[in-house]
Computed example of a mutant assay.
Amino acid sequence: MERDGLTACATSFIQRLQLHPRIFSQFQRVMKDYSTDKLNAADLVSELDTLFQFHPDFLTGYKIFLPPHLQPTLPSPPQSPNKKIVLKPFIEFMNKVQKRFANERGVILEYLETIRKLTQAKLCNKEAYDAIMIVLGKENQDLIDEFKFLLFGRNGIRNDKKKEDKKNSMEDEMFELDMNLTRRKTAEDTAKELMYSLQQHEDQQININIYFSAVSLGYIRKIYKEEGSSIITRLRDDPTSVLPKILKKLESEEKVLIKKWRDIHEKKNNPCKLRSIV
């Protein structure tokens, strides 16, 4: 009697699954790989959980086909904590992916795995989009563009454009920081060279223009802001007393520049953090 019940459940499951030809085809291939020992039991469970993740009834139904000793340890159907993700458009899009990549099961499984992580908030939208770009490849730009629209929508694409603009702005800012770090280092090296020269020849007359370039003097003037002009004047008049103060200021400025550079670099390379500041 129990066996008849299992047979009826299995028959019902197959009949329902046949209403989704592409999923049914994938199911047949997975079961064939399992029956020919290409997949072990754990791999079978993993592949079917991924294949049926958008169909909770199938997630329950396929367990009928598994060895009894595996069934108590099967994971529950995944729950999606990300309430903002509407799955239906992504399922419909999956059909297009399946049609395009009918003979490449790995692509389909990668797509399903990416959507699973997205719905479970393990990936942010930008990370999911980047992953799908790699999975589908540049030769399938039409699918990539459609997925981008599904993921971001019109407003989201505009926001994505804002993110790109923000990235470009960050690159400009990082370039400027790199330039300032270089100018700072040049000014510091020159100041140390001049101090050494003064220590060796205490009574010598110094023309700071011979040591400092106009760029280095301009940088020193800049970091002192409103006091910049008076610092340069004092440097010309009494370099021995002013140079230690300038060197200390340059060392302090290095810490500020490095912190700014690291902060921008982190935001630029962290798509989720970048999203939060747009």
Rank of each mutant, 00 (worst) to 15 (best):
G5V: 12
R158T: 09
F65R: 01
K260N: 10
G156P: 02
L247W: 04
M170T: 09
T186W: 08
V86N: 12
I277K: 11
I277G: 04
I91L: 02
I231D: 04
L217N: 01
S241M: 09
H55T: 12
Y196Q: 15
Q79H: 09
H20P: 02
I232H: 07
E173T: 15
D238P: 01
I210L: 12
K260C: 04
E266S: 10
L44R: 02
S76Y: 07
E164I: 13
K117I: 05
E92L: 03
H265Y: 12
E226H: 10
N269A: 04
Q18K: 15
R29L: 13
L194G: 00
V135F: 00
L198Y: 03
Q53G: 03
L70N: 07
S241F: 08
Q18D: 07
E227P: 03
P75Y: 07
L44C: 07
M31E: 07
R100L: 00
K162P: 02
D160E: 15
P67G: 06
R262A: 13
F152K: 01
K148R: 14
P72G: 01
I108R: 02
E226G: 07
L39A: 03
E47M: 08
E266K: 14
Y196P: 04
D145W: 00
L44F: 03
E127N: 00
E254T: 13
Q26R: 15
T60D: 09
G218D: 15
K192W: 07
E2G: 13
H55A: 08
Q120C: 07
Q205D: 11
A187M: 02
T36G: 05
R236D: 05
E47L: 08
L235F: 04
I14M: 09
Q204R: 15
L151F: 00
E227C: 06
Q200S: 12
K222L: 08
G218W: 07
L235V: 05
K83T: 14
E227T: 07
K259M: 10
T190V: 08
S252T: 08
N95D: 05
T11V: 14
S25G: 08
R234G: 06
Q98V: 02
P78I: 06
R262V: 14
